Amino acid sequence: MDFEALVKHISTMQSTLQAQAAHAVNLALTARNWLMDCYIVEFEQNGEDRAAYGEQLLKKLEQRLNVKGLNERSGLSKNKEALSALVQRQAMPLQPKDIINTPVTLEFLGLNDRALVTENDLEQSILDNLQHFLLEMGHGFCFEARQKRILIDGDYFFADLVFYHRILKCHVIVELKIDKFRHEYASQLNLYLNYFKAEVMQPDDNPPVGILLCTEKGDTLVKYATAGLDPNIFVQKYMIELPTEEEIKKFISTANY
């Protein structure tokens, strides 16, 4: 082993183990915050002394638990303070996959299966609760446009939601679907990303990222449908209700480190 090989081995080991550690931390944070949400909701609905706390519940919990900035939404899946500190230290370059929460839980929209009649219904509900949605998506998202009009060969296309990520320095296009993932959805999002790279991206921008939100997804279908497309396409499942305790256990047991 020469010096260059030593550097390569250590660099590969470091990046691999950092990614595994980050995944383990995010998994634990997801489970913690899901359970925290469930416990708080249960207390608000059935707690014998809930009336004594009222709107001051989170503040009083923060004081008793000595947890700064306690929120039912702001900690989900990502440790915002740790992420910010990591970026400031430039300990390692942030990748698009690092800024996307998994899964996306949209129970704050107050919707149910019957309410999701069209994609416009979902889009409007998100915009009505934009602050909560930005917290759920993760750190650094800035809203830019709704139904962004794209003209190609005389035909108009419309990207559902467009954000700019101030840390990654790139556009993030979010497509909303009210059914399970289908292969044509990935092709549609790939079209938008290619358009943004050619027509919208500035010289100092990084390539755009596409996030497709569906009610269900099959990992194998996603793998085959996105193979050969833009690597910055991410297919995510969203939920309109908080998971049950059994679903949390299943999520933890099936997660890949």
Rank of each mutant, 00 (worst) to 15 (best):
E175V: 03
R166T: 03
L127R: 15
L193N: 03
D121W: 09
F196T: 08
A198T: 11
R149G: 06
L116T: 09
K148T: 08
A115Y: 13
K180I: 06
I152L: 15
L191P: 10
G154H: 12
H171I: 08
M137F: 02
A159I: 11
D128L: 14
M137H: 01
Q188G: 04
E144G: 09
D128Q: 15
K177P: 12
H165E: 00
H139F: 15
D121S: 12
F196Y: 14
N194P: 04
L130K: 01
D204Q: 11
Q124I: 06
N120S: 14
E184V: 05
I152C: 12
M137T: 01
Y195Q: 13
Y195S: 11
C142A: 11
E119M: 12
N194M: 04
V162T: 06
E136M: 11
V162D: 02
V117P: 09
H165D: 00
T118G: 07
L151G: 09
D121P: 07
Q147C: 08
R166W: 04
C170R: 09
G154T: 14
L116M: 13
D204V: 06
Y185W: 02
L189G: 00
E136P: 01
R114Q: 07
F143N: 00
L176N: 08
L130P: 12
F196S: 10
H132G: 02
G138R: 05
Y156F: 15
F196M: 07
M201V: 06
F158G: 02
K169T: 05
P203R: 05
F196H: 11
A198I: 06
D160L: 10
D121V: 13
N206I: 03
H171L: 06
V174P: 00
L122A: 10
K177W: 03
K180V: 08
H171F: 15
Q124A: 10
P207W: 04
I126W: 05
F181S: 05
E136S: 08
V174I: 13
C170H: 04
H139A: 13
D205I: 06
L122Y: 12
F196N: 12
V200P: 13
D121K: 13
N120P: 06
